[in-house]
């Protein structure tokens, strides 16, 4: 049985796993943005909180994925729970760091002239600083998404959803031709998702960034 015959045979399974994988990554990314962006706004102007938050996010990222999934099983059980939480933790550093860097790189002269025109602190943040920092923030999202797509494969090892399941099935069938097919399906689908996500974020950046910045 050739690869294409095999693929047409288990196509629904591949499709479902791919969708699950994408949803898992988007969930982790979404929670990380919902927590990380406000946090970045809170800390980017103060030295100590900034160092503490970025330090902790850095520790999260240093912990190997298999260990972090394992650590989270104890309180959260197997399956979806530890997978989403682990991915969220990994996404924190790229998202928060890029937001902080982007906000800090805004030209002080621009902020000062905004204040000089009588804009409030909140108004400056919303209509000056965040729009100017936006390309850097989106880049952080893009990096985080690429990172999570790969790590999400490990979720299968803690009975989570996604394409890791195809890879581990392949491992179980080691010695049969199906082993290679399954593994390739899983890995290739992840690469395809990576390319797709990258294009999506490039588009998002193009559509949402002020044209004055992209020139």
């Amino acid at each position: 049985m050739g690869f294409y015959d095999f693929l047409s045979g288990n196509w629904p399974e591949v499709r479902d796993a791919t969708v699950d994988h994408a949803i898992l990554v988007l969930e982790g990314l979404g929670i990380a943005v919902a927590i990380g962006l406000p946090l970045a706004v809170l800390i980017y102007r103060t030295v100590l909180p900034r160092a503490v938050v970025l330090g902790i996010a850095g520790i999260f990222l240093t912990i190997p994925s298999y260990a972090l999934f394992g650590l989270l099983i104890t309180p959260l059980g197997l399956g979806n729970g530890p997978s989403i939480v682990a991915l969220t933790m990994y996404a924190f550093l790229p998202i928060i760091r890029n937001a902080v860097v982007g906000l800090r790189e805004v030209d002080p002269a621009v902020v000062e002239s905004a204040r000089g025109m009588g804009m409030s602190r909140a108004k400056i943040l919303l209509s000056v600083e965040l729009p100017l920092a936006w390309p850097v923030i989106v880049t952080g999202l893009r990096v985080a998404a690429q990172l999570l797509l790969g790590i999400a494969a490990i979720a299968a090892a803690v009975n989570g959803p996604g394409l890791g399941n195809l890879i581990l099935q392949g491992l179980d069938k080691a010695g049969t031709p199906f082993a290679i097919y399954l593994t390739i399906e899983g890995a290739a689908a992840i690469i395809a998702l990576a390319v797709l996500f990258d294009a999506a974020f490039a588009l998002l950046n193009r559509l949402t960034t002020s044209r004055g910045l992209s020139a």
Partner: peptide
Amino acid sequence: NIGQALPSLGLIVLLAVSFE
């Protein structure tokens, strides 16, 4: 960079099942 998109779990399993 593209190679890096291949998940580590995928790579190690692929090698294991391909080169027994």
